[in-house]
Design a protein around this nucleic acid. Structure first.
Lengths: 222, 222
DNA sequence: ACCTGAACACCGTTCAAGT
DNA sequence: ACCTGAACACCGTTCAAGT
């Protein structure tokens, strides 16, 4: 039923792994617009080999995203067994946010990505399924309002992750605070929901970015 | 104090306007990675003229973003005078989300953009100032919890806008629902906050994207 | 002063030649 | 079967020549 992954020759399989590892490392360090040349070099293969394994640079990125989503789903399946369903749900959300903070560039790509790519859609559906289980349990325990769905949560999470990159440079605690606001939205009305940390000010931004870059470039990934 | 905008020659000024208009139109239609050649052509000028007015393509994008932010701030200043402070605040938020839905590509760019660009930072600070006035009035009226700041709202809004593009293809009402969740987070605990619409399901995504694209490209802006 | 388009540089992708 | 790097195509940017 899946003829896509028939056996590769031993060295080919090794090259594929090396490419994925090299790409992941270099993307995390410097964003998605590092050249394929550098990735291939870091993996110790020629440029052509990269394109033999992944028909396009975007396909390479997609492969990494699929990997990451699989890991996320696995982690979620463990949390479904947890004692406190409400805590388990938000633990899952927190971990996803933390993960994307590491290599947030990836999730930015997904915004446009899953429009088309079927493999990403499949991996994404897997995450959704786990999230739905966690949510249902949390709702049955009365920890989350009954009228929200898993997709609502995922959309909110994606929002938090999207800004996490830009603002965590100012203060990493901002992400936690934003997750708290998300909790407040999801909790059953009437439950008090305190927020950690303080809200950032315009001065925080000025202080963070004014001295560093003279008149610098705009988009990291142009 | 501002020697940056000394008078341009009449034709130069006209070309600058034409370039901005052409770029804005074409960006809204097909995203940020349309070539500068096409923009210049649509504006009826040579490629070189584009780069005389804007040192880089990103600078052109930044100029448009600054324009848009200025308009947003103006709209906000009108709403500060409104009768119902709570309604005024959320009206402002709704309009920003609506605006970005039109040309959301722009706001995606800003995520990385304002890291450096001082003009964008200035325009952004202007929006922040208005938002802060709207928020303070809403808090004094008891419509919004007291422990949130303007930046909290802006971050949440940016989150909603970030996903608005991808999901509004499925159902435009999803954005409204997400704004409702934002309201729920910001409202004082104890206030019931109903949500419009329904949560999207995984099947919605599958139905929306499965038939259309065979195995298509990933990122719109690669 | 400003406009123009040919030329340059850069990077993703292909492919003929190798093993 | 798979690997490689030179060659190609594309697009942002520059610049010598024009007005």
């Amino acid at each position: 039923m899946s003829p896509e992954d028939r056996q590769l020759r031993a060295d080919a399989e090794r090259n594929r792994r090396r490419l994925l590892a090299a790409a992941q490392a270099v993307f995390c360090e410097r964003g998605l617009d590092v050249g394929v040349a550098e990735i291939a070099q870091r993996a110790g293969v020629g440029r052509g080999t990269l394109f033999r394994n992944f028909p396009t640079k975007d396909a390479l990125i997609a492969a990494i995203v699929v990997e990451r989503m699989g890991e996320a789903a696995s982690r979620g399946r463990i949390l479904v067994e947890a004692q406190d369903p409400g805590a388990a749900l938000f633990e899952f959300v927190d971990e996803l946010a933390g993960r994307q903070q590491l290599d947030r560039a990836l999730f930015e790509a997904v915004a446009d990505a899953w429009l088309a790519n079927p493999e990403i859609r499949a991996a994404h559906a897997e995450v959704m399924e786990v999230l739905e289980q966690l949510l249902t349990r949390a709702q049955e325990a009365g920890a989350v309002r009954a009228d929200v769905g898993a997709m609502d949560i995922l959309i909110q999470l994606k929002g938090v992750c999207g800004v996490a990159g830009a603002f965590s440079q100012i203060d990493a605690a901002i992400v936690e605070r934003q997750l708290d606001l998300m909790r407040a939205a999801l909790s059953v009305p009437g439950t008090p929901q305190p927020l950690r940390g303080r809200t950032p000010t315009a001065q925080d931004i000025e202080r963070a970015y004014a001295p560093s870059a003279p008149s610098g470039r705009l988009a990291e990934r142009s």
